[in-house]
Design a protein around this nucleic acid. Sequence first.
DNA 1: ACCTGAACACCGTTCAAGT
DNA 2: ACCTGAACACCGTTCAAGT
Lengths: 223, 223
Amino acid sequence: METTARTRVPRNTLSAELIVASALNLLDQVGVEAFSLRALAKNLGVAPMTLYTYFRGKDELLDAVRDHALGAAALTTAYGGWQHQIRTICRRLRGQILEHPCLTGLLQQRPLAGHESAESAESLLKALVEGGFNAENAARAYTTLLGFVVGVTTLEVRLLEENRDPERREKVRQIMTGLPPERYPTLVEHAGALRQTVGGDTQFEFGLDLVIAGMEQRLILAG
Amino acid sequence: METTARTRVPRNTLSAELIVASALNLLDQVGVEAFSLRALAKNLGVAPMTLYTYFRGKDELLDAVRDHALGAAALTTAYGGWQHQIRTICRRLRGQILEHPCLTGLLQQRPLAGHESAESAESLLKALVEGGFNAENAARAYTTLLGFVVGVTTLEVRLLEENRDPERREKVRQIMTGLPPERYPTLVEHAGALRQTVGGDTQFEFGLDLVIAGMEQRLILAG
DNA sequence: ACCTGAACACCGTTCAAGT
DNA sequence: ACCTGAACACCGTTCAAGT
């Protein structure tokens, strides 16, 4: 969790890094929706306009936060066969999103990151090319993996939030129990299984297994 | 595009359906971020507070819009083997997101839909169970498919938007060409392939093939 | 029931100004 | 350069009121 930076900052100690760290903190707490520059400025003990000395505006700040939050996902290097390398990188990306839930919103609005995400992209592409995929299929597999990891983890974060909030949890329960069984027989019968498989490493690994198994087969067939 | 409903509505002809249709229109035009109740009310030729006669607030309206936009994805029934059924449903879901790009934001914030999405869920689960998956694996496969389709299609929509906007397109190009080749050799070498595989049915089918191939193998191994 | 205007507490950002 | 207050054009929503 590092420095919270929620108290007044002494004069001339403000910096882009400090603002980004504090913004990430606030974003994870209140969500991308409720985040505001004015609230961030108040946390930093500074006038709203001060932030404009460091960033052109809200969008630029959010981009910086996304890159910063993504940065830690690119630290260690992957090893082993291409399957294992890909597993490692995807797990790391998911871990970073779980640690900073605001990444779901930030990545949805601006998928392309700067240098920080170039690290992950390089590692993934390298593993795929070394694994034997040709240029087109390596590119396609990369995009598939990125969309899959972000999509599945975003869904996971939202469902876990729904479970945490008692009010929303009750509302979801009501919708599910209110479904007419003659119209949605399978859904009603499997409601329990669906609830029990929400979130967790097992669910993520299940999906990752599917994609990688599909990639192995594809590699044998076409390269 | 149906009824645009952007002119003044005669007295007593306003309805929840009309508001939802107009809201969907505005949301697709300006995006979830820039959408506001006040702008919607202006489009409808009505005072902002009038909307509160039909919806408790903005969130409830957005939920209604999401369900409405998702509705058309559940119209036709899937047929054939479980693989073909799943393909059909996933393609339909993607098609609906492409037709209504605001669904990327709406589904990200509120993944669980009402009856409208129950239709898709029922079809997907039914195909999986009939295909031979046990309760747990059918539930896991369902969640994987949902996350995959929404995630990959969201990425597609964002990348296509980036290609459309000349300013953002140029910025992305600059970032890519500015990457040091000695640090990101694979990424730099495959920048062209990445650009060429952005969006389109081929890219989506590539990913869907991977997931379904993985599911076929999983079915043989474990049920 | 359906619809409204005024008001409240917000928001991002421009501008002119201070150090 | 770093930081500020006042102001502008917004926003969602509450409230009291009209038909």
